[in-house]
């Protein structure tokens, strides 16, 4: 096969990029709220962040983050899901990869790129070519039987977050039971309980990312 003259003109390859962390989970489980907690908490530790959102129908999540004051708007890119939130994080993540590449190129100092999936179901997973680590977020409002329903998101994610533990008592969810069952099903993979309103569990979550993704405490 002949060698391209274009290839000979330019041989520079993409630089090493920031760690890519996927955040998935059902609609309304609190993924965006969690990211709103993660951004300042990571910044406090000197960790720079950029975000790709995958809104399902609108650009609501992207606009919410861009207007939040927590992060420069240009550090947030939206990728449309084409009515298939799982497809663009799993079967065909090429637009998300391109968006993350763009952020890595525009912000080479970024340490982490968070990729927020559109709300999906318990079977949603991230392509291992898109992310280095993925977090699955469920919430007590979805019912305390969610861990028992298993699914790849519950079982295979690197980190399971059970969010909205504050409302558990009001929706009849036994949070302790959820945590116990999730831990058993996940065979030791981490499970963290969070309440984004009171920042419960956020430090633990950041510690987990710092240790398992960024290796900053190694």
């Amino acid at each position: 096969m002949p060698k391209s003259s274009i290839a000979m003109e330019l041989t520079k390859t993409p630089n090493k990029t920031a760690a890519r962390v996927g955040i998935g989970g059902p609609v309304g489980s609190g993924k965006t709220a969690l990211i709103e907690q993660l951004i300042p908490a990571l910044a406090e530790r000197g960790i720079e962040v950029a975000v790709v959102t995958n809104d399902l129908v609108t650009k609501e999540d992207a606009l919410r983050l861009q207007r939040s004051g927590l992060i420069s708007p240009e550090r947030v890119l939206a990728v449309e899901a084409g009515a298939c939130p799982h497809t663009i994080i799993r079967e065909d993540p090429s637009l998300n990869i391109a968006a993350a590449d763009t952020l890595a190129q525009n912000f080479p100092q970024a340490d982490v790129i968070l990729i927020e999936s559109g709300g999906d179901n318990l079977a949603s997973t991230f392509s291992l070519d898109l992310v280095d680590y993925w977090i699955f977020v469920i919430d007590t409002g979805g019912g305390d039987d969610i861990p028992r329903k298993r699914g790849p998101g519950i079982i295979r994610s690197d980190l399971l977050v059970i969010n909205k533990i504050d409302i558990g008592p009001y929706v009849g969810a036994d949070v302790d039971s959820m945590q116990k069952e999730a831990s058993e099903i996940r065979e030791g993979r981490p499970v963290i309980l969070t309440d984004c309103k009171k920042q419960t569990g956020i430090k633990e979550l950041i510690d987990c990312l710092v240790h398992n993704v960024l290796f900053l405490d190694a």
Binding site: V79, A81, G82, T87, I88, E91, D92, P93, S94, L95
Partner: peptide, 11 residues
């Protein structure tokens, strides 16, 4: 269509 082209997001 299984080749990752990004086309799924375009109408």
């Amino acid at each position: 269509s299984a080749f990752p082209s990004g086309a799924v997001s375009f109408s």
